[in-house]
Design a binder for these strands. Structure first.
Length: 426
RNA sequence: GUGGAUGUAGCUCAGCUGGUUAGAGCACCAGGUUGUGGCCCUGGGGGUCGGGGGUUCAAGUCCCCUCAUUCACCCCA
């Protein structure tokens, strides 16, 4: 195929049955969000570039990986690389700080980052995320983590293991940062090239270097620098999440890339993920909304990578069977079959007809792949207002009067002793 | 942005050191049953061997370039 006509690098066409898994995942996530009292918010998939520059100037996501363009009106726009900044913008612009507190929002949609694709990392990927505004309490952090864990658990990835850390607040973090830089400065010669850069740009990220692991082992620990409030905060979060039966442990080297976090940061990984570190990750960002010319509000949230979730879940999340009834027809009865199909769809039965004028044999073969019941319309039975109904799971067949067909099928489906194990998977 | 691997049918792949019309399994279609699926049997459609250039009497096979995919680093969901 002509390279110019191929899909852009790092994007994907999601084909059935995978497409149904995506859909199921979305319904499941939103369902659980509702159970926690979260409300759905939709924001544009592009924002003015300043929105993202405002919150993440030092991060790679907005520094090197931006999809930006100037539109015909000369406005500088950027495809959103993450959800938090966009929701924060919407929070201020719509005056949501005046809504009853706390404000609990979830979002679902595509995110864009121009990076080199690799395992479970795409230039367009889907994130499900939550943002909880207006509460400084550790119960808010805990609820965010518990919500995300429940989604992970519900799709079949049992026992998500939460790694958590506190990167401190405006009081204690600067003290720690200074101690850390002093420690690493004494060993500058031993550091890898990336870490030399990290010392200038974002010293905290020295801690998650995969090469210089030996050096960090004797580095100062954040926990020794936490102020009383920060210490009490993370301990309370861990108590709640652990008390709810989730496994959670402190990871002293966990520091997240986005630099708007305060106190809590957390991640959940999965063994099947390889180089991709996290199924979901997030933290607290009390100062963020204040950067949008509005009142500052405490907030905590997470983002969850749906492609990674589905990859880790594998086939444990099965799409619903496609079709329940197939209407086959004898030669010359294709129109009647389609009309019969509409009658069954009227009562909610998933129904397919032959659209290719194929032989009865071919129609039955097709039906056997997707349907539980096959109706055969036409011939001499049709003259007597009858159709043949085959039940593939029972290997049975009987004549049913056309006016009774819908009722008959509904009644068969309601019968509990019959289970549809008969090849009805998409 | 840096480094490695791989591109043969819709899918998974075979094709020995270059040598006739490039194969298999699965999938798809038809027939075996002019009105009854699955299993079985028979047949069929499908390929610019990613693209371009080069070496050679001869290239899927060797060389160069390019594109795509993939894995890792950086970073992240």
């Amino acid at each position: 195929m002509n390279p110019e006509l191929q899909r852009p690098k790092g994007t994907q066409d999601i084909l059935p049955p995978e497409s149904w898994r995506y859909d199921k995942m979305r319904r499941l996530a939103l369902d659980i969000a509702q159970q926690y009292g979260f409300n759905l918010i939709e924001t544009p998939i592009f924002e003015q570039t300043s929105v993202f520059l405002r919150v993440g100037e030092a991060t790679d996501i907005v520094q090197h990986e931006r999809y930006s363009f100037i539109d015909a009106g000369g406005v500088n726009l950027t495809l959103r690389p993450e959800g938090t900044a966009a929701v924060a913008r919407a929070y201020i612009q719509n005056g949501l700080y005046n809504w009853p507190k706390p404000l609990k929002l979830v979002y679902w949609g595509p995110m864009f980052r121009r990076e080199r694709p690799q395992a479970e990392r795409y230039r367009q990927h889907t994130q499900f995320g939550a943002e909880l505004y207006g509460s400084e309490s550790p119960t808010a952090d805990a609820e965010i983590i518990l919500l995300a864990c429940r989604v992970v658990d519900r799709v079949g990835l049992e026992n998500p293991e939460v790694r958590i850390n506190s990167i401190g607040c405006a009081v204690c973090r600067p003290r720690y940062r200074q101690a850390l830089v002093e420690y690493y400065a004494g060993r500058r010669e031993e550091l890898c090239q990336d870490c030399q850069n990290r010392m200038e740009k974002n010293p905290l990220r020295l801690l998650d270097c995969k090469i210089d692991v030996a050096i960090r082992q004797t580095a100062p620990d954040l926990a020794d620098y936490w102020c009383d409030d920060c210490r009490a905060h993370i301990e309370s979060v861990m108590d709640q999440v652990g008390g709810a039966g989730r496994s959670i442990r402190r990871d002293p080297y966990l520091v997240r890339g986005l630099d708007y976090y305060t106190r809590t940061v957390f991640e959940v990984g999965h063994p099947s993920l390889g180089a991709a570190t996290a199924l979901f990750g997030g933290g607290r960002y009390d100062g963020l909304s204040g950067q949008f010319d509005g009142p500052s509000a405490p907030a905590v949230g997470f983002g969850m990578g749906i492609e990674r979730m589905l990859s880790a879940v594998g086939n444990r999340l099965q799409p619903e069977p496609a079709s329940v009834v197939y209407i086959a027809h004898l030669p010359g009865f294709e129109n009647q079959a389609q009309l019969l199909g509409e009658q069954l769809r009227n009562v909610g039965l998933a129904t397919e007809c032959d659209l290719l004028n194929r032989s009865l044999k071919a129609q039955l073969r097709e039906a056997g792949k997707t349907a539980r019941f096959t109706v055969i319309a036409g011939g001499y039975e049709w003259e007597q207002n009858l159709v043949q109904v085959k039940d593939f799971t029972e290997r049975s067949q009987e004549s049913v009067a056309v006016p009774d067909l819908a009722g008959y099928l509904l009644n068969q489906l309601r019968n509990p002793e019959q289970n549809s194990d008969g090849g009805a998977n998409l």
